[in-house]
Design a protein around this nucleic acid. Structure first.
Lengths: 348, 348
DNA sequence: AGGCGGTGTGTAATCGATTACAAGAAGTAA
DNA sequence: TTACTTCTTGTAATCGATTACACACCGCCT
């Protein structure tokens, strides 16, 4: 029960209560089979009596571990990432590791320093969800070398050779565009992700490629700039609406932009999908509930999180030598096209 | 630069390189003023040369701290919480503390145990965003006593007397309903939060009270059950649509339900706000971009997060005695009604 | 000269758990 | 009986940083 005021019971208190040495208590906890049954019971009893819990700082110090992994993600406020995080947290909790999260937005802004616990090697592993981090911050070049194993999820940094969990963005784009083509669209536009994002190019190229393979091309005017925000989708809608050479369908690099796009169009009395079809990417919860509900590429976000977490655990179990010997795997998770109300045959 | 393979430089390596004792190195780092200028420079140089970073486990062990705070939140995937988390993370990062997050959903489901790092007192503080945790899990009664200071944000557990950061839910509801009344609505319904949530009652009571104070009452049939999900909002829409004694306005306990409600209605060709006005609560990003954009109570989510974090830091600096002497403050943050397109005078 | 106060630094104990090593007990084979 | 396992347990070193305490040194005052 631990009388309040006195400090937390330590392994010595347990040892004393059970009439054994601290070594035996420690062994009972970490490897119960090596102690005799009588001792084991006495120790467990003493643990219950004293209310003992191990002091993690002490264990970490001795074992040269930290019991924590860091997740670096670009925007905590974004529902896309928070669900991935949820998958990571779940797997890590099972493994008994704590998850340190860090929003990388401030790092992009001013200083490029990582949070202390990463740069100072106070984590056992790192999951990076932000492909825009300065590589020198993560890589061995930066002053303190980052020693912990690292995996990327969703986004990545090409110069850094580490395991990656992602979907086939290009293939997904092909699928999205083929869907529009099969509905009869020939004039198809695209709202891009931010220019410095790794995903932007592959999603655009996938779309372009799908057009080319049926002998069509995507006019440069139909390629709208964006930054993954609702706002930028709305901006694209204004451009679309203001032009007189419009695509009949727009494939958006993410759902938020797609919803912002549709929202602004609806506000301007443009009917989706009657006048223009829209496809998104991600399949946020909101996508199915929006009006019209959004046809979009479904990304298995929880699975991405879980997979990244498992992959990291696996790498953490390897020695540094094994890690560099074994090539960094790239796990490509399958996507599905969720066909909903926002796509229809072109007008006319 | 730390030759890879050899282990990380320790304070002894620095001491050796600078030709001083470890005590001096430690002092230079924690309290530079007490060492002479020459020594200080020699130490800093040695730190740079060796690439030294402090070992947090060792420091924590010695100082009997952990350098981490835990955030317990009901649903990581929910954008409402993730933005609050973002505010917390920001303040904690500045204070040099790491944030451990833990999704409490599994705790509600099967076992009611807190994550190890909380129950085993491996954090210096706790922020609770989930009012549905079993109080015995958090309170001193549970086997291992939770010693760390704790603050609640948004939700809370009435039996536990700790600082709270919240908005005036009742007052906010009054404001929402008054807005509807001022538009001429007399038949006003409500979609409730989940029955076991602390917020549900105050939001319902606020709405009821506002009606009563102008001599109206809210019919029990107009009070729809809900659970804060998009889905439950859609369900309420079905009930609304299937009835022939309908309210002309519905005030929803959260935005997600409001959006689900509007979505389902639109799908059934019911025009919002022409046929029914809708007010939400929270002001999610999506609220302004939905069609129609949602009139809603704006909660300052980032501020809630930051405030909770600062409050916790303050409590962490107190001694246990000071903490129990000083009453737990309750910080009520102001809300605003964001009037948008989803509300209009009643039909007819 | 003797005493005093203030600086700056080193020595060594300490935080709590893990684990290499040693040693005692008990059992078995020769 | 001796020698040799096998099983269980204790002793003590260790992880790396912090800090109480002591001491050396300098300058100043009486």
């Amino acid at each position: 029960m631990g009388k309040s005021g006195s400090r937390a019971p330590s392994i010595r208190d347990v040892a004393h209560a059970a009439g054994v040495s601290t070594a035996t208590v420690s062994r009972t906890l970490s490897n119960p089979d090596v102690v005799s049954e009588t001792t084991r019971e006495a120790v467990f009893l003493a643990i219950r009596e004293t209310g003992y819990t191990v002091n993690i700082a002490a264990r970490n110090l001795r074992k040269r571990e930290t019991g924590a992994v860091a997740v670096l993600l670009p925007n905590l406020a974004n529902p896309f990432f928070s669900r991935i995080l949820s998958g990571i947290a779940e797997v890590m909790a099972e493994a008994g590791l704590s998850v340190l999260i860090s929003d990388t937005t401030p790092m992009a802004r001013d200083d490029h320093r990582l949070p202390e616990y990463v740069s100072q090697n106070n984590v056992d592993g790192i999951i990076v969800l932000d492909g825009n981090l300065r590589q020198d911050a993560l890589l061995d070049r930066g002053s303190p070398e980052v020693r912990a194993p690292m995996v990327f999820a969703c986004e990545w940094i090409s110069q850094i050779d580490r395991p990656i969990v992602t979907v086939d963005n290009q293939e997904a784009s092909v699928r999205a565009v083929q869907h529009l083509l099969s509905l009869g669209h020939r004039r198809i536009g695209h709202i891009c992700g931010p220019p410095d994002n790794v995903l932007t190019a592959s999603r655009l190229e996938g779309a372009r490629g799908a057009m080319q393979s049926v002998g069509l091309r995507m006019k440069p005017e139909w390629i709208y700039p964006g930054d993954f925000s609702l706002q930028s989708g709305a901006e694209a809608a204004k451009i679309w609406h203001g032009s007189n050479d419009r695509p009949t369908a727009v494939y958006c690099a993410c759902d938020e932009m797609a919803l912002g796009f549709i929202g602004e169009l609806t506000r301007r009395k443009v009917a989706v999908p009657r006048e223009v079809s829209v496809v998104g990417f991600d399949d946020l919860d909101m996508a199915a509930h929006f009006v019209p509900s959004l046809t979009t590429i479904h990304q298995p976000r929880i699975t991405i999180g879980r997979t990244a977490a498992r992959l990291l655990l696996e790498r953490m179990r390897m020695t540094p030598k094994e890690r560099s010997a074994r090539p960094a795997p790239r796990v490509i998770l399958p996507v599905e096209l969720a066909v909903r109300e926002s796509t229809a045959p072109p007008p006319g």
